[in-house]
Design a protein around this nucleic acid. Structure first.
Lengths: 248, 248
DNA sequence: CGCCAATCGAGATGAGATTCTCGATTTCGG
DNA sequence: CCGAAATCGAGAATCTCATCTCGATTGGCG
């Protein structure tokens, strides 16, 4: 991914950081299959990456493998979880309880990454006071105060474009220091606030572009994520959205 | 961004490709404000990028500016649209009409990028035959045949993790050549099929990580997108999810 | 018309990322 | 116990990307 002007950590560069979730997913599927050890060559082959790169990435995490054997899958999983902070709980609030916002409030999988959305905000009186998936929906105007009292530092914006900037301002006012922005607008915030844009339209269009350009897959995300990104998963747990198209 | 093993185009590298949607968003806000010309310096300041980089990105699109004046905003918008293929219509199908899938079916903004989801598939009998936002929901088993008849090459997977691989196989069987995968699993598909992973959990966790690492914003996405990505928008049009928290 | 400032475009420089090469270690099969 | 194969780990080479520097062009102003 492209990092604009970002201070990168020491060990793992922003590049390898993006691949860790990919490894994590694959490793989870391997443990589910009873595999205990895996070589960088296997990982590389499945993910379309160079084995050396895989080793370097894992090395940056402080993990090491054994010649002729490979890496212990369980070590890798724990190492990645720890490195990415998935084992340290964090809370977030969401603004804009529309289609997308509601879906995110019901999304079951954030917990696996140590993140939990604890409250929602909206301006529609119809929505206030009606919890969505157990999360209370409050009036938008009360956001700064509540967020500050809750001590939450993560905010999710799923409002219409026109409301996004104001919501961002309210969040920052309440002490939010990182914003996950689904609204397709460029937010102007203090440089100390981290903004991660997640434009779904752009993401799908990006995929379409890759298709048109005949660019065989590499496993990475793509859009939004054009910038900093990550990801993981396990093949047996519950699941996201809600519908389970067979195969249960 | 990190691209696994991808054949990159000639003109614009994968890096600048990720920034184009950022420019697009900003430019749309500028036209809405009546601005006709903009310099690379202005764009760079607003987006936190180096002016030279902005010029290089735009240059890669075949666009040029005039000294002392800058670039014509309308030219830039058209150029980006064209380069990213947003002006060429494409159809997509979706599998997994759960929370997330439904939200995407109702998402109004794909059209702006030239993409339209034309049908959905699921295994839940309750959902079959009940259109969502005007899109018909069919039985998953009929996917290959229908997709082939419709001539669709884009597929979206919003199923539980366990169903994802089977759905991917069905899609490929039906002729889908690019998959947007929201299920947190690593899909194994033919190398000729493009897979773009969009793990929302990972994306949010990624943001959280950036926060913890004290990494001031750069405007880029982050996770998923790890690989090829993109994005755009206009500040006045309708909007995404559905809820409109004030400011209407 | 001539000067000044703004802005672009191109080349050079430097940092980061990816790939390649090679030596060391360990397991497996005689 | 010994040789072959696999795998890792470190260093070097290559590539891409981002930033810096500088000359050229253009519009505004006197």
């Amino acid at each position: 991914m492209i990092q604009g002007a970002q201070s990168r950590g020491r060990g793992a560069g922003t590049a390898s950081l993006r691949r860790l979730p990919l490894y994590y997913r694959l490793l989870q599927q391997l443990v589910a299959g009873g595999v205990r050890y895996v070589s960088s060559g296997i990982i590389g082959r499945d993910l379309g990456l160079d084995p050396t790169q895989v080793r370097k990435d894992l090395e940056a995490l402080g993990l090491s493998g054994r010649p002729r054997v490979g890496f212990a899958v369980s070590d890798l999983l724990r190492g990645i979880e720890s490195f990415l902070g998935w084992d340290r709980p964090k809370e977030a609030v969401l603004a804009g309880a529309g289609n997308l916002g509601s879906a995110l409030l019901r999304y079951r999988r954030f917990g696996e990454y140590g993140v939990q959305i604890v409250a929602a905000f909206d301006t529609d009186p119809e929505k206030i006071g009606r919890p969505i998936d157990g999360k209370e929906v409050y009036l938008l105007d009360s956001l700064p105060g509540r967020v500050r009292r809750m001590g939450v530092h993560l905010g999710v914006i799923t409002t219409p474009p026109r409301a996004a900037q104001r919501v961002a301002d309210l969040m920052v006012e309440g002490g939010v220091r990182a914003i996950w922005n689904f609204a397709p607008v460029h937010l102007r915030v203090s440089p100390s606030v981290v903004v991660q844009n997640e434009d779904l339209g752009h993401a799908l269009a990006s995929l379409s572009l890759r298709l048109a350009q005949e660019g065989p897959e590499d496993g990475l995300g793509g859009p939004a994520r054009l910038v900093p990104d990550l990801e993981p998963e396990d093949p047996d747990a519950a699941l996201q959205g809600g519908a389970q198209p067979d195969e249960g």
